[in-house]
């Protein structure tokens, strides 16, 4: 049961052929070759596959692609500024060594991105709650929270 589907990914419409049993993560990775989104548990339990759908974080590994048509999808590949410079959040992750093996990083970044858009001045505790569903096995989370805090509006203003 193949169908032609259009996905709006990172602001661009992309056409591809899908079947209803394909997940959004698999279509992004295998068909659209946006491999920054990772499959780690494929059960909606770890956050590694997080993408934004209409601005909110979802687990793309359990999201049927067919239900993601007509939605605005954002992946890690869309985070950098036009021209390729890293966003403030990405810079903060790099500066704090908040990415070790890097496999959870895309999901962490997308989850944090959604938080900072809806709450540009979160407390440390709010950051923790936001990423509480993103599992990282390397960092012990401290540097990730540090990085997100450095990317908040408050920290950015203080740095200026």
């Amino acid at each position: 049961m193949k169908m032609l589907a259009t996905f709006n990914v990172n602001g661009r419409d992309r056409d591809t052929v899908i079947a209803p049993h394909m997940t959004l993560a698999d279509v992004l990775r295998d068909q659209l070759r946006l491999t920054g989104t990772k499959r780690a548990c494929t059960g909606g339990n770890c956050g590694a596959c997080t993408v934004l759908m209409d601005g909110v974080p979802v687990c793309s590994c359990i999201q049927l692609a067919v239900n993601a048509r007509d939605r605005k999808i954002e992946t890690v590949e869309g985070l950098a500024k036009p021209g390729g410079d890293l966003s403030a959040l990405q810079e903060a992750f790099a500066r704090n060594n908040a990415a070790q093996c890097g496999f959870c990083t895309s999901g962490m970044l997308m989850t944090a991105e959604a938080l900072l858009r809806s709450n540009p001045r979160p407390t440390r505790e709010e950051v923790k709650v936001a990423i509480s569903g993103n599992i990282c096995r390397c960092t012990g989370y401290v540097k990730i929270v540090d990085a997100i805090m450095e990317a908040t509006a408050a920290a950015q203003e203080a740095a200026e």
């Binding site: 946006l34 491999t35 920054g36 989104t37 992946t75 890690v76 590949e77 985070l79 950098a80 890293l86 990405q90 992750f93 790099a94 060594n97 990415a99 890097g102 990083t105 895309s106 970044l109």
Partner: peptide, 8 residues
């Protein structure tokens, strides 16, 4: 390798 990791 950190830049590669924060950009996917």
């Amino acid at each position: 390798d950190v830049k590669k990791k924060v950009t996917g």
